[in-house]
Design a binder for these strands. Structure first.
Lengths: 338, 338
DNA sequence: TTGTACGCGTTATCAT
DNA sequence: ATGATAACGCGTACAA
């Protein structure tokens, strides 16, 4: 049975070399005041003994953990998976590691994760809000604790003094409607998310503007809301089918909606891409494998958003005084054809 | 401008209450030897001052960080996304947080991540090996540092004294071949991964056995290898099409291969599910949206693997003496129809 | 150029 | 029931 060999510490190196721990510390950190010989001797022994600085001690002393906390709804959604993948890469370059928390769209979980992050003394937090989050008091609380937070994708409304990275959907919606219009569609529908969701309202507005800009009428009845379950998506489709003037084109709130549209169409014998055209808000890159893919989708740049949010946070940690970074960083969404 | 209000410490509480820090510490931890009144007073003030224990100090002292490091090839692969999602949930229940590292199948990155985890003093590591990893020395090194590691999914070969969680593909392959056989297929092909990959060899063996078990012949020429790029997948298909006796059924190494098969078939006018049947090793749950989905797929239970690996690691951290856990935990893969 | 002494926040040990 | 002290590993102001 091996002895539980305690990790080597500076003290031991000092003892073996019959010098003081501080000298060792300085030597290891290339402090200019330490003689070359001493420095060499220390480094050599440290190498031999496989010395590793105890980060927990350093964190403790420096009040810094080189750790970023990331809170997002669900890791297994491709959108967030690519976002966090990018975040991890950016953080890693600066020797930061990433702590992970999934809110599952549950506000209570969000608060628990934030608490956990706080006690873990993360240096900063990246967050994409859950769909049901209404209480934003935690932002103020984090500010008291001087933990910077940067939001991405799903960002808070009415909070100005916190950095936000998100995608402006209006450009993509504009392009989408234009694409429909150019193909002669007059009746264009929007299957939207829950009416309670901020994102839904915004999409409706952009949608309306896009229609008018393209010389088309806006009619309430062509905007139907879904709570994004399969049933609800089907009901939305039913509503549209029940209209006297059926739409010939549909803009779908997200890819899950699109999937259900595809299934619905298959079941009802509707020929997608012919009877009805669809454009989707894109998360998936699998359309190219499908027989009846949407005409196009609106790219929202998850990886770019994550990377940008991470850089902002890291910059914020570098020079906390630069409060000018506190502004919105907006990516223009774009219509892409597969 | 607010003063940078330092976090409340035990000492301050002690000072304000004119008692000693140790008493405060004990009161907060419900130590039995502290009087009820004192305990109440301490807790009350702590509450008022919003006291939060400094975890970095506790970590430092307890030599424990309540942190698990997770290393896997790529977070944005659905398989790993659901795995880590499950890991995070299991860890969270035990108040552990999860540190993240993506190897991108790069052995050098793997070592860097392990080093970073080590200096961050993670309590344990969960790892799925990258495809190109051959040098396993780090396992021995981690043992020296007494950092337990549990492998999942892609686990090391020839290392017995380390817990491994993985999926036995032979059962799924058996069922797949049987499903083909029952449908009258005689020429069944396997599009395999790179020959250098351990997983490929195993699949070939299981495939061979399954064929023989089902009264079919095994012929080398029906096993083609691909390096999993789109080009290579196409070439694999070409090879099979060039055979005198073309296969009527294909077992595909993973879902990406399947996607390319689908595209290839579409391009060549091959009627999938008719001219050729496909069974895939499943990562995606999107088949139901496709017009020509594979006949079935072999479920490999990523979430279950992740959860199991995490529990084992946590158990290991609880009672390090129980070396009996060090054995393989194997999930039987299963053929599932969408 | 090097050593001494101290502090970071917490808890375990020993004393009272 | 409570207090005093030391210790965890490191960095650093101050002293020599």
């Amino acid at each position: 049975m091996n002895k539980p060999n305690k990790p080597i510490t500076i003290k031991e190196i000092a003892r073996k070399l019959r010098i003081s721990p501080s000298t060792v510390s300085r030597a290891l950190n290339d402090h200019p005041s330490i003689g070359l010989v001493t420095t060499m001797r220390v480094k050599k022994l440290a190498e031999e003994l496989n010395y590793e600085p105890n980060q927990t001690a350093i964190f403790f002393k420096q009040r810094k953990t080189f750790t970023l906390g990331v809170i997002l709804p669900k890791l297994s959604e491709p959108f967030f998976a690519s976002a966090i993948s990018a975040i991890e890469e950016v953080a890693g370059e600066k020797k930061f590691t990433v702590l992970l928390g999934q809110s599952l769209d549950n506000p209570e979980r969000e608060l628990n994760i934030i608490n956990s992050f706080r006690t873990h003394r993360v240096d900063g937090i990246l967050m994409s809000l859950g769909k049901n989050t209404t209480n934003l008091d935690f932002i103020e609380r984090l500010r008291k604790y001087e933990i910077p937070i940067v939001f991405f994708d799903c960002v808070p409304e009415g909070v100005d003094d916190v950095p936000k990275v998100y995608c402006d959907l209006s450009t993509g919606i504009q392009e989408a409607v234009q694409a429909f219009a150019e193909r002669g569609h007059k009746q264009i529908a929007l299957i939207n998310g829950p009416e309670t969701l901020k994102a839904s309202g915004e999409r409706t507005l952009s949608f309306k503007k896009a229609l008018l800009d393209n010389g088309l009428n806006f009619d309430d009845k062509y905007v139907v809301y879904s709570d994004l379950t399969e049933e609800s998506n089907y009901q939305a489709m039913e509503k549209l089918r029940d209209l006297a003037d059926r739409p010939s084109a549909i803009l779908a709130f997200n890819d899950y909606v699109t999937f259900d549209i595809i299934r619905y169409a298959k079941e009802k014998g509707i020929y997608l891409g012919h009877d009805i055209q669809v454009i989707s808000f894109a998360n998936y890159s699998l359309w190219k494998y499908m027989d009846n893919p949407p005409l196009a989708s609106i790219e929202q740049y998850p990886a770019e958003q994550g990377a940008k949010a991470a850089s902002i946070l890291l910059e914020l940690l570098d020079n906390k005084d630069s409060e000018e970074i506190i502004q919105d960083h907006i990516f223009a969404s774009k219509l892409v054809y597969q």
